[in-house]
Amino acid sequence: MNPSILIGRVLLLAGVVFLLAAPSLLSLRGLQLSTEFLTLLVLALMWNLLAGYADIVTVGQHAFVGIGAYAFFGFLVFAEMNPYLSVLLAGLVALVLAAPIMAIIFRLRAGYLAVGSWVVAETLMLLAGKLPTFGGGSGKSMPVATVKQFGGSAIERYVNIYWLALALAVVALLATWYLIRTRVGVGLTAMRDSEEGAGAIGVNLHRTRILCFLWTAPFLGIAGAIITSQKLRVAPPASFSIIDWTVYVIFIVVIGGIGSFEGPIIGTIVFFFLRETLADLGVWHLIILGAVSITVVLIEPKGIWGILRRFLPGDLIPLGHRPKSRPQPKSAE
């Protein structure tokens, strides 16, 4: 194995070990940041699958985060269901609502699809603001008794929510990795490289896009539920935040490397480093983030992973299949 590939995989393994040990090592603030990191990683992974592979460039991903947030709040607070069951049901609601949303926006293509997805998300946000049971436009906080279902103390609650976020990230990474390695994934890779070429060799573009769109919805809904369990309230501008759940996610994927499995991981790490480093600069940190993204794209359109890939002989996370070697027939003597 190439030494650079080995070093990269050792760093990935070290990161996994750190995440597993995080509840024993980090403070409350550290656990909160780690939970945010994992949920944003899931959002970035899903947007990368849509835009980087299936060519569904949506700017309305925050719609499903908000749907998951409100569904989770309703099941937990009003239906008084088990909190962990409520998290799963939030993902199911997002999946169910993905079908009619898909029927609307898939009539559009390219920039029209992006604008259409944004309009749908903003419409859902306005509808959420008309729900008096959920506090209308100002939102609603969780009752204390409901909050304590995640843990009697603050540290216990943060740890339990962190484990939820880690479990979601692991399932999202493994499931998406497996998807890309299947026959569908071969078609997605072909679509990423050349949509016309993929169609010419028999890839069903429409069916593959439908699968990817429905694939991402429950992960986004569950992420919205976990975000709500951490913030302890729902509110239309926060739960359906285009800045937090779509714009930052696009930034992460673009600078990390769109159309690659390593890109969202690298981009999330870089984003959190920049966010925490530039937090005291106010609005300037947004300007710097924009400048960084433009600089990276000008140097390498495939992001930081594209730059690193120039010096690496292979992927850190293998996605392709190696053909099995067949025994050569013995020559007749």
Rank of each mutant, 00 (worst) to 15 (best):
L124R: 06
L124T: 09
M125C: 04
M125A: 15
L127M: 05
L127Q: 00
A128S: 05
G129C: 14
L131H: 01
L131A: 11
T133L: 09
F134A: 13
G136S: 10
G137A: 14
S138A: 11
G139H: 02
G139W: 05
K140S: 13
K140M: 13
K140L: 15
S141T: 08
P143L: 07
V144T: 15
T146V: 13
Q149A: 07
F150R: 04
G151A: 01
G151E: 02
G152V: 09
A154W: 00
I155N: 07
I155C: 00
E156C: 00
E156G: 05
R157F: 06
R157I: 04
L164Q: 02
L164E: 04
A165F: 11
A165H: 01
L166M: 09
A169K: 10
L173F: 15
T176C: 03
L179Y: 10
I180R: 14
R183P: 02
V186A: 14
G187V: 03
G187P: 14
G187C: 12
T189K: 13
T189W: 06
A190S: 14
A190E: 00
M191F: 06
M191V: 09
D193N: 10
S194A: 10
S194V: 04
G197N: 09
G197S: 14
I201N: 08
I201D: 06
G202H: 01
V203G: 08
V203K: 05
V203D: 07
L205R: 03
R207N: 15
I210P: 05
L211R: 01
F213D: 09
F213P: 06
L214N: 11
T216R: 06
P218L: 08
P218N: 07
F219N: 08
F219L: 11
G221H: 04
G221T: 01
G224D: 03
G224N: 02
G224W: 02
A225D: 05
I226H: 08
T228C: 04
S229H: 03
S229Y: 06
Q230R: 06
L232A: 00
R233C: 02
R233H: 08
R233K: 09
A235P: 07
P236D: 04
P237F: 10
W245G: 00
W245R: 07
Y248D: 12
I250S: 01
F251M: 11
I252E: 12
V253Q: 02
V254D: 01
V254A: 03
I255Y: 02
I255P: 06
G256D: 10
G256S: 10
S260F: 09
S260L: 08
F261T: 13
F261C: 07
F261N: 08
E262F: 09
G263A: 10
G263C: 07
